[in-house]
């Protein structure tokens, strides 16, 4: 091919525009129905589903809560949560390591959005990829647990950067694991010094009231 035949086309196009547009549509649907939406992100096994079980128990009678839970292949998390709400659906991502906005859009069809006050999305257990995908949520929560080690904010700064709240879970295990809280907080504060952190435990119940108040405070805005 001769050089003069080559034409250069200048484009400025967001490659993720389809995701971002669907995310905006999701946000519009949620707003229309008055549903607050939280995207919960954290590593595999940090305690997301357990926290949601406790959250559903705590909010029962006060708020109608729906959950969309993402996992590669199983429906186990949805089945656990179905004990507490009928507004729950599992989204299987196949090989994908994160949820995308169109999966949430399809998930809406499995729920009665008009009946909900709060929708929590349990993202696929992963500290990396979920951060890059807007789902249409109003707030993002990054979850760590003490068994993962105190170095996770330093190793995964982007989830710290992108979150509106950080949860540090399994603090009941602090006496048994080597976890330097000072180091955890110092690393986190060198990324965002104003970020709120709530320490939680499903065993002792510590922090659950604070977490639920945080959700309620978002609804009041």
């Amino acid at each position: 091919m001769s050089e003069q035949n080559v034409m250069e086309i200048q484009v400025v196009e967001n490659v993720k525009k389809i995701n971002d547009e669907v995310a905006d549509l999701n946000r519009a649907s949620l707003n229309r129905h008055g549903v607050l939406c939280v995207n919960l992100m954290g590593s595999p096994g940090c305690g997301k589903t357990t926290l949601l079980e406790d959250t559903l128990k705590k909010l029962s009678g006060a708020m109608t809560v729906g959950v969309l839970t993402g996992d590669l292949a199983t429906t186990r998390d949805a089945r656990r949560l179905a004990h507490y709400t009928d507004q729950v659906a599992q989204i299987n991502t196949g090989r994908a390591c994160h949820l995308e906005a169109n999966q949430i859009r399809k998930g809406f069809d499995l729920l009665d959005l008009a009946a909900l006050d709060l929708l929590i999305i349990e993202n696929v257990g992963n500290l990396i990829c979920p951060v890059s995908w807007d789902l249409g949520q109003h707030a993002r929560v990054g979850m760590f647990s003490v068994t993962e080690g105190d170095d996770k904010p330093a190793k995964h700064p982007y989830i710290v950067l992108a979150s509106d709240l950080v949860l540090l879970n399994k603090v009941d295990l602090l006496p048994y694991v080597t976890f330097d809280s000072d180091r955890f907080y110092a690393d986190l504060r060198s990324i965002r010094d104003d970020l709120e952190v709530i320490q939680t435990s499903a065993i002792s119940g510590e922090g659950l009231d604070k977490w639920v108040s945080w959700i309620r405070s978002l609804r009041d805005i």
């Binding site: 080559v6 034409m7 086309i9 400025v12 196009e13 993720k16 990324i191 010094d193």
Partner: peptide, 21 residues
């Protein structure tokens, strides 16, 4: 202070295509 607001650094942009017949 560590109060960063990201101006640039997120996103994937298609910028240029060179095309031939």
């Amino acid at each position: 202070h560590a109060r960063p607001e990201v101006i640039r650094g997120w996103g994937v942009m298609l910028r240029t295509i060179e095309a031939s017949p």
